[in-house]
Simulated scan of single mutants.
Amino acid sequence: MNINQFQEHLIEYAASIGIDKIGFTSASPFHELKNRLIRQQELGFASGFEEPNIEKRTHPELLLSEAESIIAIAIAYPSKMKDAPSSIKGARRGIFARASWGMDYHTVLREKLALLELFILTHKPDARLRSMVDTGELSDRAVAERAGIGWSAKNCAIITPEFGSYVYLGEMITSIPFAPSEQMEDQCGDCRLCLDICPTGALIEGGQLNAQRCIAFITQTKTMVSDEFRAKIGNRIYGCDTCQTICPKNKGKANLHQEAFKPDQELVKPLLLPLLSMTNRSFKETFGHMSGAWRGKNPIQRNAIIALAHFKEASAVPTLIELMEKDTRPVIRGTAAWAIGKINTDDGLTALKKAEQTEEVEEVLDEIRKGLQFYILEK
C-alpha cells in the first residue's frame, strides 16, 4: 500500500488501541519554539525539569538522523470524580491534580506508542522510529499543536475540541514522510480567565508561564516552600488544576472513558494525617503507580503538612510536634514547626519554645521562630 493508504490504516489502528487523537507533522525544526525557550531561560522562567539542550528540543533530526515526520498522539483523562470523599474536621484530605489520577500516564502512553511502533514496523520493516512521552527532548505541546491535535492555549496547555485540555500527549519521530495534518486555529479569543485566576500569577501572559511560580511545579520541589506560596497551595499535595477548571473550553468535558485513568477516590483525595507516617516502602506500594509519586514521599509529606496548616487542623498538632522534634529531614521539621504556629494551640506553643532551645539547623530555627510569631500575632 502507498503512504497515504498506510497513514489511514495507522489512524484506524490507533483508534482501535484506545488512542483518542492522532496527528502528523513534518520533522522540520521548531524555530519559533526555540526563540521562546531561549527567552524563558533568559527570564529564569524554566522549571529545570526540562531537557536543558535547546537544540535537541527544537531539532528532531538531532534525535533521529532520518527524521521525516512526527506522529503526535493524545489520550484523554477524566476531569470528574464520582463520590469524592469529603474533607471534614478531624479527617482532612489533600488532592492530587487530575493529571495524576489513575495509572501513571507515562506508562500508558509508552505502551500505546510501543504498539504503534510494532504496527508500523510490521508493515514498514525498514522504518526508523523514536518515541517519547513528557520526559523526552521534544516539547509535547509544540508537536501536538503543529500536528493538529489542538491549539496552544493561554494557560500553556493544548486544548482539543473533543476533550478540552484534559489530554496526555506523546509523539514518535519517524523516517516515513507522512502527510501533515491541518493545524487548528487558536480559539481562546479575548478570554483571559486562566491568567486572572492563577493563584500565584505564574501565567505572565497568554502562552507564557513562569514555572518557578507555578503551584504544579512548587508542589514537586523538595526544598522549603517560600512563605509567599504556602497559603496559595491550600490542600493541593501534587499539581494544580486551577487554570484548567476555570477554562470555558473544559466545561462539560468529563472524559470518563479511559479505564486506566479512573481515579481511586481514597488515593487521589487522601487523608492527610496517615500520609505523614508513611515509610518509603508503604508510600511506593500505595502511590507508586501514580505519576504524582515520581518525586517520592518527601514533597507529598511536606505539602500535606502545609495543607493541615491551611485547615488549621488541631488534631494534627501531636503528630506535627513529633515530626518537628524527631524527624531527620530539616524541611519536614521546619514545615511542621511553621504549621504548628499556624494552627495555634497551647500544646503547640510549648513544643515550639522547647524546640527553639534544642534545634541546631538554622533553616529549621527560622521556621520555629515563624511559628512562635503566629502566637504573638494572635494576641
Score class of each variant (00 low, 15 high):
I246D: 03
R130G: 06
P177Y: 13
R236T: 03
I215A: 06
T223P: 00
H123K: 14
M132N: 14
D134I: 02
N155R: 01
L209N: 07
I197E: 10
T200V: 04
Q183H: 07
L138A: 02
K154V: 01
S181V: 09
T160E: 08
P248F: 06
T221Q: 15
I215D: 06
T245H: 11
N210G: 06
T223K: 08
E137K: 14
I233T: 04
E185G: 13
E137D: 14
E185T: 13
C156N: 12
I149D: 03
S175E: 14
P177F: 12
L138H: 02
G239A: 05
I204A: 05
H123I: 01
A179N: 09
M184S: 03
Y168D: 10
K222N: 15
I204L: 06
S152M: 13
H123F: 13
V143M: 03
I173Y: 08
C188N: 08
R128M: 11
I237P: 02
S181E: 07
R230V: 10
D126T: 14
I197G: 00
Q187E: 13
D227S: 14
D196Q: 15
C156R: 13
I176V: 15
A216E: 07
T245E: 15
A147L: 06
Q212P: 10
I233Q: 03
V167E: 08
A157K: 09
I204G: 02
C247Q: 09
I204D: 03
S175P: 12
K222L: 11
I246M: 05
T135C: 04
R146M: 05
S131Q: 14
C188P: 03
M184I: 15
L193F: 04
K222E: 14
S152D: 06
R130H: 14
W151K: 08
Q220Y: 00
L195S: 02
M224S: 11
R146F: 03
G136L: 09
G234A: 03
K154M: 04
T200Q: 06
L203I: 07
A202D: 00
A211V: 08
C214A: 11
G170C: 09
G201R: 08
S152A: 12
I218H: 10
M132V: 00
E145N: 09
R128N: 14
K222F: 01
T221N: 12
